[in-house]
Computed example of a mutant assay.
Amino acid sequence: MAAVKALLDVNDRRQSIDYEPLCSTENRKAYTQVSQTEWNNYPYTAILVLGAGPEEPNVSISPEGKLRSAYAAMMYRQHQAPFIIVSGGRVHPYHTPYNEAFEMKKYLMDVWQIPESAIIIEPHARHTTTNFRNAARIMFRNGFPVEKAAVVTSSFSHLNFVEGMDSRCLRELGYVPYRLGKRLNERMMEFFPLQESLIIQPTEPIDP
C-alpha cells in the first residue's frame, strides 16, 4: 500500500480522492434529495452527462462540455429525470487543475439555474467506460430504482462509440457496467446500470 501511494503521488495521480467524501461535500444536497424523490413522476431516473474535457490549458470547461450540459438542463426542465449526473475527472489536458464534473456542475448552476440538489458529480472517471461504471455505482449506492431506465447524453459521434463499447469495457474493466436501451435521438440514449459495476478492480489503484 505504501508503494502504491508513493507511485500515485510521484505521478500526480491522486484524483481518486478528489472531493471525497462526496456525501458530505459536493453531493450532499443531491444525496439528501434522493430519499425524497417520487420516481414515478419521471420517465427516467437520471440524465448522465459524459465529460468533454478541454484540450487547451487554463480553460475550465470546453464548448462541447457546455453544449452537453445545456442539453441535460433542457431535459431536466422538461421533467425527464429528477437528477443530472455530470461525469469526468481531471483528464484533459495533462496536469489540468480543472475537474470536468465540477466545472459542469458550476456551469449548470450559474448559467442554467439548475438547483444544486438536482446535480450529482462523478469526479473520478478517466474514460467513457468509467463514466458509466462510476455513475452506475452512485445509482446503486444511493437507492436509485435501477430497474428503471436512465438516459445518457453526449455528442452524436460519442454515442455512436458507446454503442460499440462493450468489448472495451470487457478488456479494461473485466465486465460491462450497463445495459443499453433505445437510442432516442442523436444526443440521447437509454441505459440501465448493472450490478457488475460494483466490482472493485484490485489492480487499479485509482479505482475510487
Rank of each mutant, 00 (worst) to 15 (best):
P82D: 02
P82V: 06
V91Q: 09
P93M: 01
L50K: 01
P82Q: 07
E55I: 10
S35V: 11
V91E: 12
V49E: 12
E64I: 14
Y98M: 07
H92E: 13
A46I: 00
L67H: 15
V91I: 15
T96K: 00
I85S: 03
N58M: 11
Y44F: 14
R90N: 13
N40K: 12
V49Q: 11
Q36W: 01
A81W: 05
P97V: 03
L50C: 15
Y76A: 07
T37P: 05
P82N: 05
E56V: 13
A46T: 11
R77G: 15
E38M: 07
P82Y: 05
G89C: 08
R68E: 03
R68D: 02
I85Q: 07
P82K: 06
E64W: 12
Y98Q: 02
A101Q: 02
R68T: 06
Y98E: 02
Y76I: 01
G51A: 05
S62E: 11
N41E: 14
A81T: 09
Y76P: 02
G65T: 09
H92P: 04
W39G: 13
N40A: 14
Y44A: 01
I61K: 12
Y94R: 11
Y94Q: 11
F83R: 04
Q78I: 00
V86C: 04
W39D: 14
L48H: 11
P82C: 08
G51K: 09
P54V: 08
A101L: 10
T45N: 10
R90I: 00
H95T: 11
P54D: 12
V34Q: 04
P43V: 08
V86Y: 02
H92I: 09
Q80R: 15
Y71C: 03
A46K: 00
V49A: 10
L48K: 10
N99F: 09
F83Q: 07
E38F: 08
M75I: 04
F83S: 08
G88L: 05
I61G: 08
E100M: 06
S35D: 07
G65P: 07
L67P: 00
M75L: 15
A73E: 07
H79K: 15
G51W: 06
A72I: 05
G65R: 12
N41W: 03
S69V: 09
R90Y: 00
I47T: 06
V49C: 15
A46E: 03
N40P: 00
K66D: 14
I61P: 10
W39H: 08
K66E: 15
E100P: 07
